Simulated assay, not measured.
Amino acid sequence: MNGSINLTADLGEGFGAYRMADDTAMLDLVSAANIACGFHAGDPRIMERTVRACVERGVSIGAHPGLPDLVGFGRRTLDCTPHEAYTDVLYQLGALSAFVRAHGGRIAHVTPHGQLGHLTRRREDIADAVARAARAFDEEIRVVSREGYLTEAAHRAGLRTGHVGFADRAYGDDGELVSRTLPGAVIDDPDEVVARVVRMARERRVVTTGGRELEIKCDTVLVHGDTPGSVRLARAVAEGLAAAGVAIRPLED
C-alpha cells in the first residue's frame, strides 16, 4: 500500500483566444502541472499566467514540450531527427524557464507531450536526444515518462526519473495506450477513473481493455486537461485518493 502519489495535469494548452481547460480550477486540485511550451499549444501570455498561478499555489512546475504542431495539437503522426528533438526540447525548456525565473520558481520536471512522447517509446535515439536536452538544461531536472527508452536514457544521463500512470486513458494488452482514434481510448466516467487511480496508487496495477492485469511503475498520475469534464474528473480523483488514505504530494516531497 502506498501513502502518497503525485497528481498532475497538462495545463496552459490554449492558444490566443482559445482555451482548452479551466486551468485555475485544476491548479486547486493537483500537486504538479505540465505546462505547454509553445510548440503544440501555449503562447507567452498563457505560459506566464499559468506559471504565475502555479507559483502562487505552490504547485510543482513541469515543462511539457511537444512537436511543432499547433494545428494537430502535437498528436499527429510526425517524425523528427534526434538533433531536431534535442534542439526543440531545449528551446522549449528555455522559453518556459524565462517565465518561471521571473516568478521565482524552478522547473522541477520535464515530460514529453503527445507524438513526441510516443516517439521516445519507439525510438531509442529520440529518447536519448530528449534526455540529453533535459540534462543540458538542468542536471537536477527530473524526467517523467512511462517506463521505457526515455527513463533508461535519463538514468544513463544521471537524471532522476518519475513514472506516470494515465488516469483517463485506456491501456491495451501490450501495455501501450489505446489510440485516440479508437472507441474507449479516453475514459470520462468519474467512478471508473477514480477506481483506476486508487488502484494505480495503492497496487501499481491497471486493467487493460482485454481484461488483463497489468503491473506498472507509477509515482505520478496524470489527468489530461483536454479530457471532457477534466475538472470534474480531477476533483473526483482527489476526493477518491483522500478517501483511500493516499496523500497528494509533488514528486520532490
Score class of each variant (00 low, 15 high):
61 I>N: 03
57 R>Y: 08
67 L>N: 05
77 T>V: 15
49 R>P: 01
73 F>S: 01
62 G>L: 04
77 T>G: 06
78 L>H: 10
81 T>E: 09
78 L>V: 07
55 V>I: 15
76 R>A: 11
83 H>F: 00
56 E>W: 09
52 R>Q: 15
67 L>T: 06
80 C>Y: 04
61 I>E: 05
52 R>S: 14
80 C>H: 04
72 G>D: 01
72 G>A: 03
54 C>V: 09
52 R>V: 13
52 R>E: 13
49 R>S: 14
69 D>N: 13
53 A>Y: 06
58 G>E: 08
82 P>R: 07
82 P>A: 02
59 V>Y: 01
69 D>S: 06
53 A>W: 09
76 R>C: 04
60 S>P: 04
81 T>F: 09
85 A>E: 04
74 G>C: 03
63 A>G: 14
46 I>L: 14
65 P>T: 05
53 A>N: 12
64 H>Q: 07
53 A>F: 01
59 V>E: 00
50 T>P: 03
66 G>D: 03
58 G>S: 03
88 D>R: 05
80 C>N: 11
75 R>V: 05
54 C>L: 13
57 R>T: 08
84 E>H: 09
50 T>H: 02
50 T>V: 07
84 E>L: 14
50 T>A: 07
83 H>T: 02
84 E>R: 07
79 D>N: 13
56 E>I: 11
66 G>V: 06
87 T>A: 10
64 H>V: 04
76 R>Q: 12
52 R>G: 07
85 A>N: 05
72 G>E: 06
65 P>M: 08
68 P>T: 08
70 L>T: 11
84 E>M: 14
59 V>A: 04
48 E>T: 14
78 L>G: 12
59 V>H: 02
51 V>F: 03
68 P>E: 09
60 S>R: 03
50 T>W: 03
61 I>L: 10
86 Y>S: 05
60 S>H: 09
67 L>E: 08
76 R>I: 05
75 R>C: 06
